[in-house]
Each structure stands twice: as structure tokens, then as C-alpha cells.
């Protein structure tokens, strides 16, 4: 282990970790918003909306995130979409993770006991009120864990933006591996920072899960 090297490169990695956190956070927010819209579409009464929602989820889950990022960043300019690597990165990651988050949300909503819906409708609640006041509060609790799993996957997957030259943790790692030829030291530094981010997020998820648990 070359400790002097680790000390020398650590500040650059810290900065890169900031980029990884920010890009993951932006993608998370976009992912949640899109996923909520997709879930609403997939549970709607309109067949066209249901189909569009299902098609989005199927296509984004059925193709690699890396290809989606390349299509957006390299292919975008051909159809008039010119984005910086950073912007293409968080939008691409967010659009990808939305498909997985939509699955988690739908799963949680469908997991709420059917009797709840029936009871709400029986006492005169409309469809919207049943969803908003009865189903969603219960489903929200069930969503926390699967959405947490999605978020951890998103953070690790955010490393793909290094392939469109966003200077994040993975990009910095690759650069220092090929300039210092010390793969193990560089991996150790990058791995430590990824682990810290993932552990912090997992702890937040566990806290939220415990805070909102019914029992």
C-alpha cells in the first residue's frame, strides 16, 4: 500500500465524491417525480395511458443504462438536444431509475389489502379520495424499502456517467489508475467513498422505515 499516494490523491477524490452525490441526488428527484407519474399512468382507467406507462417501464428496464446515456448524450444533438455531460448524466440516470422506482411504487400500491379499497368505497369515498386518503398512506410505508434499494443501485449506477466524461468518482478512479498504475490503492480510495455514501443512504432508509412503521 502506497500511503503517500493515497494522501496525495484523496482531496481530488473527495471533490469527485461531491459530484457523485449531487448527480445521484438530482437523478433521484427526477426519478421519483417521473416514477410517480408513471405509476399514476399505469393505474389509470385510460388504456392508452396504461400502455404508455407500461411501455416506458419495459423499454427502460429492458435496455442497458449505459446505452440510454450514450443515446441521450451522443445521439441527442442529432435530434436537437444538446446537453452538457453533467446534465445528460443526471437526466439519463433519472429517466432510467424512474422505471425501476415505478415498479416499486406499483408493487407497494397493489400490496395494500383489497379490503381497504372496498371498505373506503363502501363508506362513500370516490376513487381519488380512496387512493389519496386510504391506499397511498399505507402504500407509502411499503415503498420505503424497495425505493431505498433502487436508490442504492442508482448511486452505484451513477458511475456510468464517467463514460460520458462527467468527472465523478469512477472517472477520477480510472484517471488515477491509468496515470499511477496503482489500481489497488486507487480502488481502495474510491471504494471507501462509495461505501460511505451507500452506508449513509442505507441508514437514512432504515431510519425512515422505522419512523413510519405501523407496529
Amino acid at each position: 500500500m502506497d500511503i503517500a499516494l493515497i494522501q496525495r490523491i484523496f482531496p481530488y477524490f473527495l471533490e469527485a465524491a461531491g459530484v457523485t452525490v449531487v448527480i445521484s441526488f438530482l437523478a433521484f428527484v427526477l426519478g421519483m417525480v417521473l416514477a410517480a407519474a408513471l405509476t399514476a399512468m399505469r393505474l389509470s382507467r385510460s388504456r392508452a395511458l396504461r400502455f404508455a406507462g407500461a411501455a416506458y417501464v419495459s423499454v427502460f428496464r429492458g435496455t442497458p443504462c449505459l446505452v440510454q446515456l450514450f443515446l441521450l448524450y451522443f445521439g441527442g444533438p442529432q435530434i436537437g438536444i444538446n446537453l452538457s455531460p453533467f446534465t445528460a448524466g443526471w437526466i439519463g440516470l433519472g429517466m432510467n431509475i424512474a422505471a425501476y422506482m415505478a415498479e416499486s411504487m406499483r408493487g407497494a400500491i397493489l400490496a395494500v389489502d383489497h379490503g381497504q379499497r372496498e371498505a373506503a368505497r363502501t363508506i362513500g369515498f370516490g376513487r381519488a379520495r380512496t387512493m389519496w386518503l386510504v391506499i397511498l398512506p399505507q402504500a407509502a410505508r411499503l415503498m420505503i424499502r424497495p425505493l431505498g434499494v433502487n436508490t442504492v443501485a442508482l448511486i452505484k449506477g451513477s458511475s456510468l456517467v464517467s463514460a460520458i466524461s462527467v468527472i465523478d468518482l469512477a472517472y477520477t478512479a480510472q484517471r488515477y489508475i491509468s496515470s499511477t498504475y496503482k489500481p489497488f490503492e486507487v480502488f481502495a480510495v474510491a471504494a471507501l467513498l462509495y461505501m460511505l455514501i451507500v452506508i449513509a443512504v442505507s441508514m437514512l432508509v432504515r431510519l425512515a422505515d422505522r419512523r413510519f412503521a405501523i407496529d
Partner: peptide
């Protein structure tokens, strides 16, 4: 634990450059 907490891309870098080293 290490492989679950880090991205595949990083692991590929490690294996690709590390094995040679």
C-alpha cells in the same frame, strides 16, 4: 460486502488493471 457496496464499473477497472499488475 466490498463488491456489493461498490459499482461494477470500478470493479472492472480494478480487475482489468490490477490483474496485470
Amino acid at each position: 460486502w466490498l463488491f456489493m457496496g461498490t459499482p461494477l464499473l470500478l470493479q472492472l477497472f480494478l480487475i482489468y488493471f490490477g490483474l496485470v499488475q
